[in-house]
Write a protein that binds this DNA or RNA. Structure first.
Lengths: 114, 114
DNA sequence: TGATTTTGACCTATATATAACCCATAACAC
DNA sequence: GTGTTATGGGTTATATATAGGTCAAAATCA
């Protein structure tokens, strides 16, 4: 079953996406690309691009990132290139392999006997 | 009407989201937070968090960013704080106000009369 | 100015994502 | 080792996002 979904977001989340949306729109206009053009290239509908540029929080992250890539907005400042981002992925994979696989909370050792 | 959606993504998009997913999982485990805990805090289901950590491209960007925020992964290197990100938003708003509102392609001046 | 194009805001039918289960197994703590 | 919890991988009913369309208004350009 599914409950009706009503999300809340932190201020930081909202504004981060707001910034990303603004950057995307700026970049598109600077490059004189029509909304329809970008939508076509990204494989999405124009109405979807509208939502992305309006910072709609419920857009698919893949669609948003794809549009960002198309208009030239880099997602990670540290890694604007594919090779850079791959290095970062490798680093994170190494790190993950060293970390425990699961997180365990302390047993609920019923310590209430005093 | 709606056509069946089959998306394609650039390599860069895929790997950027892969990196983000890895960073999220690392951060969660480092902080000894259970998947269920993070999901609850983010207001999403555990299965959704699983998809986020597996770099599923079709997750809502709001949910992904919210989880990132919760476990402490900064979205923009340049702006880890709310005040910083707001400055960036202001800058982008100024920029947008200076840009043309729409993009126009050259008229298809039917120049085929020669 | 007028011609042309882009955009924003709707709407609808349908494909799809989602929450909430379940279960088996893995991982950890002791 | 045992006991406990976390996780991965499914399934299902339903809420919701999506593509695709329309229309009017705004913006650009000659």
């Amino acid at each position: 079953m599914r409950k009706s979904v009503k999300r809340t977001y932190s201020r930081y989340t909202e504004e981060a996406i707001r910034l990303l949306a603004n950057l995307i729109r700026s970049a598109r206009i600077e490059q004189k690309l029509t909304a329809q053009e970008v939508a076509d290239r990204a494989g999405i509908s124009r109405s979807m691009l509208q939502r992305i540029e309006k910072a709609d929080l419920r857009c698919e992250i893949g669609a948003v990132f794809e549009v960002a890539t198309i208009v030239g907005v880099s997602l990670f400042d540290t890694s604007q290139s594919l090779t850079m981002i791959r290095k970062e992925i490798n680093r994170s994979n190494e790190k993950l392999s060293l970390l425990p696989k699961t997180v365990h909370k302390a047993h609920k050792v019923v310590d209430d006997d005093f």
